[in-house]
Every structure is written in C-alpha cells, then in structure tokens.
C-alpha cells in the first residue's frame, strides 16, 4: 500500500536524498548489481570518501525497495566472487527519475556556488 502511494508521487517529492541513498542510486544507474558491487562502486566513485558498511547499505536498500525506487532483479552467483548466490538490485523507472532530479538539484547548487566564486577559483 505504502509502495503504491509513494510510487504515484512525483520524483521531486523524494528529494533531497540522503548522501548514501544518492550514491547507491548512482551506482545502480550502471545496471543491476549485488550488494558488494554497489559498495565497491560507491567507494570507487567517491574516491573512498564514502564507504558503505553492510548495515547502512542494506538498511538503505530496504527503504529504497519499500519506496519503489529500486527492485530486486533475481538471485544468482557472481562468477568473480564464488558460488554463493547473491541478490541483485536494479533501478526502477521512478528510481531513475528521482536520481536524475537529485543530480539536477545538486548541479544547480554547485552552479550557484560557482557563480558566487565559492568553488572553481584558487583560494587567496
């Protein structure tokens, strides 16, 4: 019931996203991934400034599944990481719209900061 109601809402109603959530959605924009691949993707993209532990990652994924931004895409083994079957996650159409809206919002903020010369200039 909650999932359906939230899925009907416009993408902007989900903003702003917590940093961990935004990073997970950006990682999933590449395609379906399992938990460890998401964690590695986030760490690599943020140059190790954001390190998601299992609790933070799966806590966020649980909320993202409940709000309909992410869905499970099956369970299978990752040939690179052994025989254990892993759950894969992917973005929904709503999730893609939300991450795009959040990226636009952040971009507008960065452009405003640049106009004020808060970034992009050498500090004196």
């Amino acid at each position: 019931m909650v999932k359906k109601r939230r899925a009907d809402q416009p993408p902007e109603s989900h903003l702003p996203l917590p940093p961990a959530t935004f990073h997970i959605l950006v990682a999933l924009a590449d395609g379906e991934l399992h938990g460890y691949a998401i964690m590695k993707g986030v760490a690599a993209r943020s140059e190790d400034t954001v390190r998601l532990g299992p609790g933070t990652l799966y806590g966020s994924l649980k909320r993202l599944l409940a709000t309909g931004l992410v869905e499970e895409s099956g369970e299978r083994a990752d040939p690179e990481r052994g025989d254990e079957r892993r759950r894969y996650y992917r973005l929904t159409q709503l999730g893609l719209s939300v991450v795009r809206a959040e990226a636009r919002r952040l971009d507008a903020m960065v452009r405003a900061a640049r106009r004020k010369q808060l970034i992009g200039v050498r500090p004196t």
Binding site: Y36, M39, P54, Y58
Partner: peptide
C-alpha cells in the same frame, strides 16, 4: 524482521 531478510546477504558482504 530485517535480520530474517538480509542477514545472509550481509554476512556474504562481510
């Protein structure tokens, strides 16, 4: 409830 759903995945990740 959370453990029942994600414990296996979390241990794998650990």
């Amino acid at each position: 409830d959370f453990r029942a759903e994600y414990e296996r995945e979390m241990v794998l990740l650990f």
